[in-house]
Nucleic acid binder design. Structure first.
Lengths: 239, 239
DNA sequence: ACCTGAACACCGTTCAAGT
DNA sequence: ACCTGAACACCGTTCAAGT
């Protein structure tokens, strides 16, 4: 719950942006800026989910009209890319410092997972634009570690991008789960619904899925994610 | 280009649905059905891209009104899930038959890649709803092979879902690339633009990205994808 | 230069009215 | 039962008008 630096950071900042009349009045005295827009975007996405972020709600949050936003960002896509990149850089920067490269890789991956857990809308966003800055930041962080690990020159990009794609795929599924969940119900109920659907599939055409259905409800997403990281790490070191 | 069974299949079917007046008149004599809606959906997505599929264009394509669609599917989300699942099952079914499990895994993964290549809109769709049927179908296909490979019982789900997430992540990036591309320009121009952006990043904060930027333009997406599959396969077998 | 908010050109979905 | 298409409640974005 609290293993995300960026989550707590933005949580602290968010008191400034509470929709109380006092703070809203204080807010209007400061001019709009891209920074302010990104902060408000992250706040709304975290608190109310992806569907809640429209240029109308964002503008209302900042006590202005939707048109004002276009003086600081070119489009909603640019705003979302900037918000995602912000969250990912905070996560990656906060996880650096490990000396052992294997530990560093796990720490970085875990930090990214925790950022996605705290801001599940990122999962959908990273898929919306290809090779956006947030994705390149991950490639850089992972690639540098694989190089330190002594992975051969040509394999460095292969292994790093494999890990990046794995993270993106998991982030996407995670975000989709959070979206269909609404922010209230807990994740176990969602997983229970998933296994319920799995059990209703024909057992002879889906034997594997049936065999893993039991026990899936109480599986630990974070542990599961890190297990996948270790599979890729083992594969990278096996040549 | 032609390594996708589903692609050619739907291409052949698509003559029925050409927007010529004759076929459109012939079409109206047949009642609407979910099957027909799915076929038309895939057709429009393949030919015109994700943005072109609206319930208005789909209805016009079938010479009816948008409301008629709701007699056969509950929502646009359901229609897209069904379309994705259709494409994935055709791809997976067409790739079965390999006896050697390692060859089978590579063949299945390649078939899924080719399906994504032929229908890039799938990449975005698979991220839209969590654990939708198309994703479960991949989990089943991969999981069964990992079991055959002798992966330990507890690791079977780990390794299979790692591979599924990797495929989903790559599919998402691929689809995003295809979307920003428009369907006409070739992929090399897109990759050139990506590396151009990479080169403009600060070289001291992005040393790894800079080091892999050269040569990235002419990299082979399919080969790259299969290299990642082999990394995960090696990791799965390394314990 | 920056902001405002009505207006434009769309969406997915609903629903009264038809056959 | 199935279809039709106008209407509803929204979007992101634009732009004339203000300060």
């Amino acid at each position: 719950m609290f293993h995300d630096q960026s989550g707590t950071l933005f949580h602290r900042v968010s008191r400034w942006h509470m929709p109380s009349t006092t703070s809203r009045r204080r807010r209007r005295s400061v001019p709009l800026s891209k920074e302010r827009l990104i902060a408000a975007t992250i706040e709304i996405l975290d608190a109310e989910g992806e569907d809640a972020l429209t240029f109308r709600t964002l503008a209302a949050h900042l006590s202005t009209g939707p048109g004002a936003i276009y003086h600081h960002v070119a489009s909603k896509a640019e705003l979302l890319m900037s918000a995602a990149s912000r969250v990912i850089s905070v996560a990656i920067d906060g996880s650096s410092g490990e000396q052992n490269p294997v530990a560093a890789l796990r720490a970085t991956a875990a930090a990214v997972f925790d950022a996605i857990d705290a801001h599940p809308w990122i999962g959908a966003q990273l898929t919306r634009e290809p090779w956006q800055l947030a994705v390149v930041q991950m490639l850089e962080a992972f690639g540098r570690i694989f190089r330190e690990l002594g992975v051969a020159k040509l394999a460095q990009f292969n292994t790093a991008s494999t890990l990046v794609h794995y993270v993106l795929g998991l982030a996407g599924q995670y975000a989709a789960g959070a979206r269909t969940l609404g922010s209230r119900t807990d994740r176990e109920a969602f997983l229970l619904g998933v296994t319920e659907q799995w059990r209703q599939l024909d057992a002879s055409t889906y034997p594997f899925v049936h065999s893993v259905a039991e026990g899936f409800e109480q599986h630990d997403d974070r542990k599961q994610f890190l297990a996948g990281v270790d599979v890729i790490l083992a594969g990278a070191l096996s040549r």
